[in-house]
Write a protein that binds this DNA or RNA. Sequence first.
DNA 1: AGCGTCAATCGACGAATTACGATTTATGAG
DNA 2: CTCATAAATCGTAATTCGTCGATTGACGCT
Lengths: 126, 126
Amino acid sequence: MSVASTTSSRLPGVTTLGVGSMDDAVLARIAKALGHPARIHIVRVLLERQTCIGCDLVDEVGLAQSTVSEHLRILKAAGIITGEIRRPRVCYALNPASLGPLAGFLNFALVHGVAAPLEQQLERHG
Amino acid sequence: MSVASTTSSRLPGVTTLGVGSMDDAVLARIAKALGHPARIHIVRVLLERQTCIGCDLVDEVGLAQSTVSEHLRILKAAGIITGEIRRPRVCYALNPASLGPLAGFLNFALVHGVAAPLEQQLERHG
DNA sequence: AGCGTCAATCGACGAATTACGATTTATGAG
DNA sequence: CTCATAAATCGTAATTCGTCGATTGACGCT
């Protein structure tokens, strides 16, 4: 099925390979790491102030320091953010390229999913 | 920053509003629903054969019927798939529009994230 | 009516997640 | 050296997740 250079988008980091080229586990890992409001919030903050932040994150998301640290660990483990140690601080930054696979998958689903007429979604059967 | 009609992409379902217009909880909910290999796999299968499938999904993902049913329930609850009851079968189909918010957020991160200081990403490995 | 098929639900159980406070580690400042 | 600060880690509790087998429900057939 379609390992074709089908349109998709020309977003940086998004391969134009078909959806079949991506591994379920890879995509799930990224999605799972983003699957918490606090972590989405962290990514958003890192997006706004690209300059790294340290403990400001703790103030931003209204959770305990240890909890925020854990969320940062999860994001880091997924490769979504980077943490440059600068004792006693740590400079966090977004690693946008890591989002490429999931973004590519979703874009693919978006452009190829709408091709199905509404009636098909309600009427078709095998 | 926030609500700007910045570029992004012209993918269907992706609003051109800024990243600030999306709620953390909404994005996290979609991401969480996709945060499992089996569910990614289901979405992919639904993408390939847009025509809905019933029990074929159980064969596709190699899990018990009740487990697959649970994954389908989660995807349905997140609005990612639809299930048209056609006794004794159920016709599942992708609801691509539901992926729009997350796709938009990731695209935004992708295009706006590359501007981040390069040295941080290189210096990071330690 | 009775059977077969498919999907949902129930109950169970271990594993993982989320959250917190307390502690520890590592610096830089005074 | 001592103190303050920032981040990670530890221990722990509550909750959620993932998975399964068994059961139930709802049809279409014969």
